[in-house]
Nucleic acid binder design. Structure first.
Lengths: 150, 150
DNA sequence: CTATCCTGACTTTCCCTGACCTTCAACTCC
DNA sequence: GGAGTTGAAGGTCAGGGAAAGTCAGGATAG
């Protein structure tokens, strides 16, 4: 387990902290474990809270791409906040405050802020409470994390 | 697959973004694949969401014509498409194609594309079908309109 | 005993194919 | 010259194989 984790981290370091692509089955073969074990490692060690983003594709020529998020201290607090947002949900006013703040801190451009706000407006989602605030929470988190990648 | 896609795109570029005519069987021969594979590529990569129009003719002297839709008259075409998207909903693959197309057209930056894609991912929305595709449709429309607003 | 690690069976997604269908132009035959 | 024939295109669809995802639950370390 430990070894899978450090193997992947070594790969990332070798690629200069850029994105790394893996083949799940090959990696499982290499470590003599079940393929689903790879998923477990990714979920527990390479999740957003640990500063990583996972993307993947199934089918022929499938892959798993791991991107190390650019984490600075400011964003650290945001990560914790995002977790809370996903758990409890967030209302439109709260989301607006968050995006406005990110705009002020120059973490979001004007256009990006407009996109984010449009995506989570009440009449865009058009769902009954409380599910609306929960869905909004997940969207907010996904969008903010997408920015931390690069 | 990838290669067929980029081959066709190269053809289009060489023709100055004008219409391009292909012979399905020749292309299949050239890439050593089944002719129906060509149809698959066309359906998944050169559909209206990606901004392409396909016309074809069977029988002797048949052909497949691919036209890259110009973004200039997009004001009407995209708006009409967005209305459709809101009515019928849109799946993740369709939304991805749309945003990728907007990125290619430089109507979206790389970062903006990432935000949009993250917002409408299946596991972000985490809603049961068919409501998931409908919500995604509304979000897609809202985000695209937010961009058009300047 | 509990938390963590790990697995196998099942699911989902994506690519690709072959068998069969539809359409078109040219050709034949009267 | 019109009606049927025919061969050469492209279209469609169910299904198979590859690869990753999920999840309930067993195994194990502390």
């Amino acid at each position: 387990m430990e070894s899978i984790e450090s193997y992947i981290k070594a790969l990332i370091q070798m690629s200069g902290d850029g994105p790394v692509e893996l083949r799940r089955n090959l990696l499982a073969l290499h470590f003599g474990c079940a393929p689903s074990q790879i998923n477990y490692v990714l979920q527990t060690r390479f999740n957003p809270e640990s500063g990583y983003l996972i993307e993947s594709r199934r089918g022929g020529g499938g892959y798993i791409r791991i991107t190390k998020l650019n984490i600075d201290p400011r964003k650290c607090r945001i990560l914790a906040f995002l977790e809370e947002v996903v758990g409890r949900g967030i209302d439109e006013a709260g989301a607006t405050r968050l995006f406005t703040r990110l705009l002020e801190e120059r973490l979001l451009s004007e256009r990006e802020t407009q996109i984010c706000l449009a995506a989570v407006r009440r009449d865009t989602l058009d769902l009954p409470l409380p599910v609306r605030d929960l869905v909004r929470g997940r969207i907010v988190k996904a969008m903010v994390l997408a920015l931390a990648k690069d």
